[in-house]
Amino acid sequence: MLCARPEVALLDLEDSVAAEGKDAARVAALAYLCAAPGRGAGVMTGLRINGPVTVHGLKDLSALADSGLRDAVVLIPKVESARDIDLVAQVLDAAGRGLSLWALIETPRALHQLDAVLAAPMLRGVVFGAADYAAATGCRTSSRALWWARSALVAGATAAGIPAIDSPFFELDNPAGLRAESQDARELGFAGKGAVHPDQLSVIREAFCPTADEITSARAIVAAAEKSGGDLTRTGGQMVGPPLVAAARDLLARAEQGALMPPVHQEEAR
């Protein structure tokens, strides 16, 4: 079974562009996004701006506001308070223009203030920034080293009713590592995973789509629950109760609708 939802293609004005090239990159990125439809060939487009309290971030917001861009994703880096989201939302008239604001959570302070950040009314999702978080804390970027931060972000986002996307995997020639980290992300409850190269998309998509065995197991759990009339029962050697039945129904619904959240594909803006 294929996972039908498309990925999001982001043009990056922050880490992918050196300081001396940011003005030119901004012009090029906005020209492309305004010329292309918000959803083309099943891919939603968007822009990762510079931090909204930096000089280039303010320039990005001003240019975005003047561009008239509509129906696109805006990824806001270095978010550490709800005010960061509110500022961008007000400057861009996000609600009126159909802009979907996502926060890049990548510092210990952001996690410490996570409940407040997630309360921002215009926030539509969060992305974990492993590289900056690891640099700030001095830890490694391995899945194990970032387990708590990633789990905390997923739990907070779930409580707030918005999706969380895991950080990209930065080793381009390590598909086995990408597959393992993508599977970890799905197990933690992330709705998708970032990608820094198109070759990574198929591996991520495969990891987030339910397997044939998972679908078969979920169907058996639901059937056993229905047969028992909602009482505790067993199937496939495991005890089946309400939480497992709810999870099985959710997996089957998402598989049928192709509604698993897609990976984010981040492109470099030149």
Rank of each mutant, 00 (worst) to 15 (best):
42 G>W: 07
69 L>N: 08
154 V>G: 02
68 G>C: 10
261 M>G: 13
269 A>D: 11
183 Q>H: 11
8 V>K: 05
196 V>N: 07
256 E>K: 06
237 G>V: 05
64 L>I: 05
45 T>N: 13
23 D>K: 01
226 E>V: 01
179 R>I: 00
269 A>T: 14
113 Q>G: 00
227 K>M: 08
57 G>L: 07
120 A>F: 07
176 A>N: 09
74 V>K: 01
75 L>F: 06
144 R>C: 13
123 L>G: 03
109 R>D: 05
270 R>H: 12
171 E>G: 01
268 E>H: 01
42 G>Y: 07
54 T>P: 03
207 A>S: 12
261 M>F: 11
230 G>K: 01
96 G>S: 08
53 V>W: 12
247 A>F: 12
142 S>D: 14
168 P>R: 10
243 P>N: 07
9 A>D: 08
86 D>K: 04
23 D>Q: 11
84 D>S: 04
92 L>Q: 02
118 L>G: 04
63 A>T: 10
263 P>H: 07
190 F>H: 13
176 A>T: 14
201 L>F: 10
189 G>F: 02
80 E>F: 08
231 D>R: 14
50 N>Y: 06
166 D>N: 12
165 I>K: 02
80 E>I: 13
164 A>E: 03
211 T>A: 10
159 A>H: 07
14 E>H: 01
161 G>D: 11
114 L>E: 08
25 A>L: 08
123 L>K: 01
270 R>V: 12
145 A>G: 09
95 A>N: 11
58 L>A: 15
253 A>I: 02
116 A>E: 15
55 V>M: 06
201 L>W: 13
65 A>E: 13
253 A>L: 10
209 C>D: 09
